[in-house]
Structures are given as C-alpha cells and as structure tokens.
Amino acid sequence: MAVEEAQSANRGGIVSRLATWTENLSEQTYALLLLAPGFLILLLFAFWPLASSFRMSFFKDVVVGPESLGGFVGFENYVKLLTDSNPFATLTFLDPAMETGIFQQALILTLLFAIISVAGETILGFAYAMLMKAEYRGQRFVRVLIIIPWAIPIVIQGMIFFLLFRPGYGLLTGPLHQLGIFPQLPLGDAFSGFVIVTVADVWKTSAFMALLILAGMESVNQDLYDVADVMGASTWQRFRYITFPLVFPALMVAMLFRTMGALRVYGIIESTGVGCSTVPSMTCLVTQFTFGSTTLYGSAAAVSVLIAITVGVFISIYLLFIRYSNQSLGLA
C-alpha cells in the first residue's frame, strides 16, 4: 500500500495532476468543464457568426470604399431583397419578365429543388434500403455499391455530371438535344441546368436516405414479422402494416435531414458547371453578394438570415407533422 502510493506519486505529470484536480469538482462544475472546449469552438465559429450575421443584415451595403458595411438601415436590405428584381441571375424558366423580387425567385427555385429532390430521394432511398435489407449472397457488396455515391465529394459528383452533359460532346448531351428535351448547351440553360442539378443530387444523396431508412428497418423487432407470418400476412401487408409504420419515424428524420440539406444547395450547382448565374439557389445569393463584382455584405447577411428562417419554418412543419402523425398512428 505504501508501495502503491509511492508508485502513483511518481507519475506526477501535468496530465495526471490535472486529472486529480478534476476528481474533487462537483458534478455541476465537472460537467461544465467537460463542455467548455466544445462550446468554446461553437461560440467562436458558430454562435458568434450567427449573431454577427443577424446584426450585419441590418446594416447598409457599401459598394465603394474600404469599409464594407454602412450605417444601420433597419429592414431596408430585406425589403430590397423581396421587391427588387434580379440583377445577377436570369431565371428565364421561372420568371421571364423578371418582375419578382430576387429573393422570392431564389426561394421558389430552392423550394422546387428541395421538394422534387427529396421526393425522388425518398422513393429511391426506400428502394435502396429494401435492397440493402434483403438477405442474399453478395448483400455486403451491394450495400457498399449503394453507399459509395454518398461518400463521393460534391465537387466530383459535379464533375461526373459535367462530363455527362458538357457542351457538345457529353454522353447525354446529344441524344437529349435530338429528342428536343435539352438545348445544345444544357449546362447554361436554366431549365435543363435545374434538371441536371436535381438528378445529380438525387443520385448522390439517395444513398444517405437509404442508410437512415435501413437503420430504421434494422431496429424493427424481427419477431413482429414472424407474428405476421403466423397470421398469414402477405408481403404487401407485411410492408403496409409493419415495415412502413415502424420505419416511419426514421423516414421522417431522414427526410428532415435531407430537406435541410436541399435548402442549402450550392456546391453541386457550382461544380457541375451549371453555375449560380443559371440556377441561383438561396445560398448562391450569399456567395454572389460576397464574392461578386460588387460586394453587398448587408444584403448577403440578410439572405443568410432568410435562409435560416426558411429552414426553421420547414423544420417546424416536419416536427408538427411528426407529432401529429405519431398521434394518429398511435406511435409513442
């Protein structure tokens, strides 16, 4: 015992002394100490920028001069965004007359993108999940093949679709042009650009959706299927009365995640070569205002606040829907 004490005293390094010091803290202090590093990072690189963005959105854009922010202008930036037409993007397939406010155009485009892509991803994701869940030889291999697109960097996802649709010689450019669906330069056209971006997004993120749905399926108690078999349920009935209702919460979470992702769409627009000037999403406006020929920091901040509000609205809708459907499905 004396030996033990001697031995542990020998280790009096700074680390062990620190660890010993934490031993005598109360649970409250100890918890806060453990949270400190994480919340310090979050404070500097998340909470502060959020607050700062919010504040900046009420200050005037300064186009010329060393200072990039002018005086306090209240909601002027927001008003401008919601009423002025678009000086950067030409959303010809949405609003040829360019009479709508710039933010509404981006909002409508982003919402369209979110709804179409999430719908496509949900259907495909469910199908992929079933494919990953079923048991057969080579199932592990198929799982890997399905997951891989999700792990592909966005810039490469963009590159792939650029190569498929690049001007003139992309694999699908010619055929689709001859069918009269796409113009000769599909990447530069608002409608076909939008379609390409949506397809690219569905291709990559269906896998993520499938992973979350699969996780939901795996956590369903397998005994329930045996019960259903004993009761003589058909394959469709098993899906309808067991798989679907029990996977539903996971499906909602997955859709929520993906909707949030889709509302922030930006990288795939740039990396396919479609570009923000052709398909201006909401996030596009932020980068255009920040890096464009004229820097409009106040407006950029106002757009980012509006994006956050849009995401917030969608999350609320989902949460309300989940709560409502849990009640009506009788799920706890």
Partner: peptide, 20 residues
C-alpha cells in the same frame, strides 16, 4: 442550443467568419 445550431445552413455562418 446544439440542436438549433444544426438547423442553420453554412451560408449563415460564412460571412462573419470570412470577414474575421
């Protein structure tokens, strides 16, 4: 606060950080 944070798009965080 962590949950709420994960709702915000990167664009919202970007501009102040870029300036800093």
């Amino acid at each position: 606060s962590l949950l709420v944070l994960s709702w915000f798009p990167p664009a919202t965080l970007f501009l102040p950080l870029f300036r800093a």
